[in-house]
Amino acid sequence: MEAPLLVLFIILILITVNNLRDMSISCNVSLLLAFARLNSIFHMKVKAYSPLVVIFRGNNNSSYNGVESIAFTFKNNCPYTIWPGTLSGASSPILSSTGFELPNGATFTLDAPTPWSGRFWARSLCHSDATGKFSITASLKGVSQRLKHKDDSVSTLLARKRPILQTHAISTLLLFSRCSTGDCGSGEKSCNGKGGAPPATLAEFTLGGSMNKDFYDISLVDGFNLPLSVVPQGVTNECPATSCAADLNTQCPDSLSFKDTKGSTIGCKSACLAFNQPQYCCTGEYKTPQTCPPTNQSLYFKNQCPQAYSYAYDDPTSTFTCPTGVNYFITFCP
């Protein structure tokens, strides 16, 4: 190959790799065609450049812009099926799955590039129709059968636009949710960029953050629905595990209780969600750590799960770090 053409070819490779993060699959295909054309010009063997083909497959989690990915392995120890959801941060790529079904005892592994930030949670008590799509039909039917007053049919309640949560011992959200807890409103297993409705226990991650470290926590700021643990793999004291293994639903204060249509507590709301007041949400004049101390409600969470975030300014005892590059094992109902 002549030297000028070789230089041109190398420049094209460098420009392409530098812009890979923002490229769509269609752009990658076009670039492959361009490389094929260069191959015919330079009489090169494509086999010798096969790594380029791997790079341009698009959304390949084994490599992201030249950085190896890490693996999140999820396990369901709950005695029933759950549907974990994933949500990437605003500047992070969407993972290959945004939601999946996880039966009792099953595991599922999902790769993420570094840097990456986002959260995981689990949906529970989901209702599906004959096609496998999530449906509200079962929830509506159950509510209609259990309403205490003769004239309070579902259609009547909706027509009145009354706050059902305040007038009946059932959750308004159950009328509109396809999953009783953590529902993301997508109507299917994938959440497609939508977060879970509170109350929901969260596992939050920032991979490849400051000083080349991962930051992770379990958060109850959005309330609690299922016990959860996060265990870094293959490391010891340098990367501590964290968990909220207690079932907060069993002793959840009545003012925070999130109930199903039978009146059973299936979630425990945060004080912010339950009361929507600045002193509980750390907003307005309460927006600093000095003006927004723990409340009796957040202390219930903290006493049960001392490693988890119990309210907005619970950083010192709830955020953990680990050198970037380790894999994580996430267990529901550990």
Rank of each mutant, 00 (worst) to 15 (best):
L125V: 12
G99T: 08
S96K: 12
F120V: 07
T114L: 09
E101N: 13
P103R: 08
S92A: 08
R123G: 07
P103T: 08
S124D: 14
T114S: 10
E101M: 15
S117R: 06
W121M: 06
N104G: 09
S97M: 04
P93M: 04
S97Y: 12
P103W: 09
W121N: 08
R123I: 05
P113Y: 04
R123E: 06
S124E: 14
P115W: 04
P115D: 03
R119E: 02
R119V: 05
G99K: 06
F120W: 08
S92K: 00
T107G: 06
L95D: 05
W121H: 04
L110Q: 13
S96Y: 11
R123C: 06
T98K: 07
W121K: 04
P113E: 07
S92W: 03
T98M: 10
H127F: 14
G105C: 12
T109Q: 12
G99C: 04
N104W: 13
S97K: 14
R123Y: 05
P103N: 09
I94H: 01
C126F: 14
A106E: 14
H127V: 14
P113S: 07
N104Y: 14
W116D: 00
T114V: 12
T114G: 00
T114W: 00
P115Q: 01
T107C: 08
T114M: 09
D111E: 14
S96I: 08
S92H: 00
D111T: 11
N104R: 14
S92T: 00
L125Q: 15
I94F: 02
G118W: 01
S117F: 00
G105L: 12
T107H: 07
F108C: 06
P93W: 02
L95K: 02
G105M: 12
S96F: 12
A106L: 08
G105N: 11
P93L: 03
W121A: 04
P93T: 03
A122N: 02
L95G: 01
T107Y: 04
G99L: 10
D111I: 01
P103S: 13
G105I: 13
I94M: 11
S96R: 11
R123P: 08
H127D: 15
A106P: 07
E101C: 14
A106M: 14
A112N: 02
A112L: 00
L102R: 06
P113V: 05
G118L: 03
F100L: 13
F108M: 13
I94T: 15
S97P: 02
R119I: 03
F120I: 05
T109R: 11
W121R: 04
P103M: 12
F108Q: 13
T114K: 03
D111L: 15
D111H: 13
T98P: 04
R119K: 07
T114Y: 06
P113F: 04
T107A: 05
P93S: 01
L102M: 09
C126S: 15
H127N: 15
A106Y: 13
S117T: 08
G105P: 11
T107V: 11
P115E: 05
E101I: 15
I94D: 06
P115K: 04
T109S: 15
A112D: 01
L102P: 10
T109Y: 08
F108I: 07
P93I: 06
L125D: 15
A122P: 03
H127T: 15
R123S: 10
P103H: 08
T109L: 02
F120Y: 07
E101T: 15
E101W: 05
L110N: 02
P113M: 04
L95S: 03
C126W: 14
G99H: 10
W116H: 03
F100K: 11
T109A: 10
